[in-house]
């Protein structure tokens, strides 16, 4: 093993996120593809966690900026999706904390549910369903909601959900079971 120059020999090598941003062309392409593929999903995930369009946009940008600090991951398709969702979850928690701080300082309600604007105006049934789904999601605790979304909306495997959330596989199964029950009950009640 080659000797490291001072101060890296003292075990003080700079962390990966401080490295030069000079990405190879292939890395830039890989990141661009990753961004085009995952950004809409991450935006939807953050929107469902935060219920705030502006925060979801900011959070999406922040998430991918952090992904860029680890450009080598763009090449590993099997690891990258749970990794990006994990970053998005952390970003959402940070944004949530910041919003609570700002909300408590200004006296605003920290969490508000955005009006359902996803469906075309003509599709009344679609809008109603989207609104009921969103309201049902809003009633779930944050962690349970995130687990349910990762599995049902974003199709991550149970193992990947457990890795992303940093919880056990058993907990993932239990949380999904309970979240489904609660969501179905809400949808039934709203019919």
């Amino acid at each position: 093993m080659a000797a490291l120059p001072f101060p890296f020999a003292l075990g003080m090598a700079p962390p990966a996120e401080t490295r030069s941003p000079s990405l190879e062309a292939t890395e830039r392409d890989a990141f661009a593809r990753l961004y085009a593929t995952l950004a809409p999903r991450i935006h939807r995930f953050l929107s469902d966690l935060l219920f705030d369009a502006t925060l979801a946009r900011d959070g999406t940008q922040e998430t991918f900026a952090r992904v860029l600090l680890h450009p080598h991951l763009s090449h590993d398709a099997s690891r990258v999706v749970p990794f990006v969702f994990g970053i998005a979850r952390n970003v959402s928690l940070e944004l949530r904390k910041a919003r609570v701080r700002a909300g408590s300082a200004t006296g605003n309600e920290p969490e508000t549910i955005a009006p359902p604007s996803a469906c075309p105006e003509a599709s009344f049934a679609c809008r109603e369903t989207a609104a009921a789904l969103r309201a049902g999601l809003a009633e779930l605790p944050e962690e349970r909601r995130a687990i349910l979304l990762l599995r049902l909306d974003h199709g991550l495997s149970y193992d990947d959900v457990a890795t992303t959330m940093g919880v056990s596989l058993a907990k993932v199964k239990i949380e999904i079971f309970r979240a489904k029950e609660a969501l179905r009950a809400h949808l039934e009640a709203s019919k």
Binding site: P40, A65, L69, T129, L133, D153
Partner: peptide, 28 residues
């Protein structure tokens, strides 16, 4: 099925890779 239907109805979001690169430089 509900989630899929909702996903299909969602409008596309604007993608700005340049802003992401700029933010990454700040973070570094």
């Amino acid at each position: 099925g509900l989630f899929r239907a909702r996903e299909a109805a969602l409008p596309a979001i604007a993608l700005d890779v340049a802003a992401v690169h700029a933010r990454a430089t700040e973070l570094r």
